[in-house]
């Protein structure tokens, strides 16, 4: 049986990608609130997903505050679809 994508098979990273699946883009504060993760941990996981090309991260200054906005890339969407397909095989759904 096919192995689950190790990058997605982690609680916080899977939560991030699932949240981004149904929105066009979301900022760091919103993701932090929804995942209830710490800023440091969330930041590290966003970097990992970004390095893999699963999400795109845009950093900008809005007003005088820095703002980080994330969105799911087509590669990330495909990876999540594949992950769910593999999960279904495991669970015989």
């Amino acid at each position: 049986m096919k192995e689950l994508d190790p990058l997605l098979h982690s609680q916080l990273r899977l939560a991030i990608v699932s949240l981004l699946l149904t929105v066009e883009e979301a900022d760091f504060v919103w993701l932090k609130e929804k995942t209830e993760a710490t800023s440091g941990n969330l930041s590290v996981q966003l970097d990992k997903l970004s390095e893999a090309g699963y999400i795109s991260v845009r950093k900008e200054i809005v007003g005088k505050k820095p703002r980080t906005t994330c969105s799911l890339t087509p590669k990330g969407r495909d990876a999540l679809n594949e992950y769910v397909r593999t999960l279904k095989e495991y669970l015989h759904i």
Partner: peptide, 27 residues
């Protein structure tokens, strides 16, 4: 939320829960 690995069932539940959370934003 941590970076711990999940069981397959927990994964499905987590995806559903997160999608449900975003649904509230749409209203």
């Amino acid at each position: 939320m941590k970076t711990d690995e999940l069981t397959e069932k927990e994964s499905i539940e987590l995806i559903s829960r997160m999608i449900e959370k975003t649904r509230n934003e749409m209203n």
